[in-house]
Design a protein around this nucleic acid. Structure first.
Lengths: 328, 328
DNA sequence: CTGAAAGCGCTTACAG
DNA sequence: CTGAAAGCGCTTACAG
């Protein structure tokens, strides 16, 4: 392996000078600079990041913790982060938790050991242990997807989105609107979306029997099953609002399998704007979140944190877009 | 920051001893070990990976170059790699090329500077410059998705898959089978799949007019457009084979929009087994590749390379599965 | 404008 | 079983 010492020797200067031309810092005579450049060019020398990091305490690597890599949401978010980090010469070190809460904490530690400059966590819960771990972090942490007080976060307005969607259903003349949610450990999806739905129903004076409230686990199948149970409710629903598109897809399929018409008998809506939801006929009405934007916002926040800007906003709430299609 | 020296001092031993207990190497008395362990425990000390890497020349990080992160294929492949790397304490450093060929080369270099232990490249082409760069790499490289002579690769049998799919269509009584492919720079998808189709057609003595051969760019829209052109061919097709599910989806939609029945008038098949292809009605007949397996195989190959095993297989060809559904 | 020297936090022969 | 010392490849005051 070729080192800075080799270059110095070949160029007939000290390694201090080589370092200076590499980093474009301090004074170097044009003649010396040229000689060094030439040698670097012909040897293909590249400085060791480790040696550099050891000295500077900087790695230009951002650790990213994902709940699951194989999802459209994750990949779009990472894509957004990548677009800003790339421009500033940062890279991403990815880890996945596979929805294991303990792993979120493990990876938080692991990444710090890797001496990443910062960590972006795509969060699915707000467990107190997790929050503690984040606050104890030696490097800046930005959270995406869940609002954590005291931690810079990028979130979607789940509450407003759910309200808006429920309103839409009511505007369209639906009254008996069922809901398929998820566990409340997930504050954004489990709590906020449900609250938006419930509040809007209450606002319009519509009572919601228990049988209209289903719970799934994000999967298509769980949406199917929740819907199947809902179809047996004593008071029939004329619409169903699934907290995610995938569960909405399951409900959609279930409704058709049971011989009902969409939207004639039952309207179906979701949140997430997946490709499949757009492609089926009738296409699913949904809410579109800009995950790329969430990623790039998180990255921008991280850069500000890294630049020592103290006064960065504690949270950034992203907009959503209602996508009205045939299922309604 | 707390270092090995602090631990040594607090435990009343030399840092050599601390290093020994951390790495579980050499002799350490039980008493000393315990003292060191205790101090590490209570201080929460973690060794600096950079200092360690600087000495050992090992980083336990594998660089992964992806053409595009926002695709099902990419994420499943990374998932597969992750599952094996995780067990052996390796992590993944991700970069994306966004289908820019120059970036593939740039990232290959960039990752070496990061002193990754190895690089896995999900390849979309076999440009000679790229091959040269790979062969010049200081660290082991494994390629996924394209066969590169002299470079350990994990590939799918695209040729056999396309043959099998064409055969199936013919078994079902179709003769006028159109094809929607992609640019030949992509050897696997562009060349191999088309060859499989063409050979099977020739084997059965079916002539293929130019108007049956379309080209897209992997997108749904490009499949739609290629199909639209094909529908105007003087000799009508009674089936269409798209080289990817996404283009197949476009063709599927185009056929229906033009008032034809699937599979009554025209059968549609693809390759890739995407979620949407499963969900539409009639569901798309397709070929399923095990991307997770491709990822884990690549990771295993990498580990063997890293362990200095010289005699690893030059390539690993993965199996495929025919998924017959209603579109045929 | 340039270089000698110290130091970043580790590991590893070597000597005891 | 243990420690002193050298060295990994860099950067950065400091002195000239």
């Amino acid at each position: 392996m070729i080192t800075i010492n080799d270059i110095a020797e070949m160029a007939g200067v000290s390694r201090t000078t080589v370092s200076r031309v590499i980093n474009n810092t301090g004074y170097v005579s044009e003649k010396a600079r040229r000689r060094v450049m030439d040698v670097i060019e012909e040897t293909g020398y590249v400085p060791s990041q480790h040696a550099k990091s050891l000295r500077t305490k900087e790695t230009k690597i951002i650790g990213v913790i994902l709940p699951k890599i194989s999802t459209d949401t994750s990949s779009r978010t990472v894509n957004g982060m990548n677009s800003v980090f790339e421009d500033v010469g940062y890279q991403i070190l990815l880890t996945t938790t596979d929805l294991d809460q303990q792993k979120e904490i493990d990876h938080l530690r692991l990444l710090q050991n890797r001496q990443v400059d910062g960590i972006i966590l795509i969060a699915t819960n707000m467990d107190q242990k997790l929050v503690d771990e984040i606050k104890a972090s030696k490097v800046p942490v930005v959270v995406v997807g869940q609002e954590m007080v005291g931690v810079p976060s990028v979130i979607f307005d789940d509450h407003a989105a759910a309200r808006r969607m429920t309103e839409l259903l009511i505007e369209k003349g639906r009254r008996s609107i069922g809901y398929i949610g998820v566990d409340e450990a997930d504050h954004s999806v489990g709590v906020q979306r449900k609250a938006g739905y419930l509040e809007t129903m209450a606002y319009h004076g519509i009572e919601v029997p228990d049988a209209w409230m289903g719970t799934g686990d994000f999967s298509i199948d769980s949406g199917y099953e929740a819907m199947a149970r809902m179809l047996e409710a004593p008071v029939k629903v004329d619409a169903v609002f699934a907290a995610t598109d995938r569960m909405g897809l399951g409900a959609w399929r279930c409704i058709r399998r049971h011989g009902y018409d969409i939207p004639g008998d039952i309207a179906v809506v979701g949140i997430g704007s997946s490709e499949t939801s757009r492609f089926i006929e009738p296409a699913l009405t949904t809410i579109e979140y800009e995950h790329e934007q969430a990623g790039s916002e998180a990255a921008r926040m991280m850069m500000q944190l890294l630049q020592g800007k103290k006064k960065i906003p504690d949270k950034k709430v992203l907009d959503f877009k209602l996508v009205e299609r045939d299922s309604i």
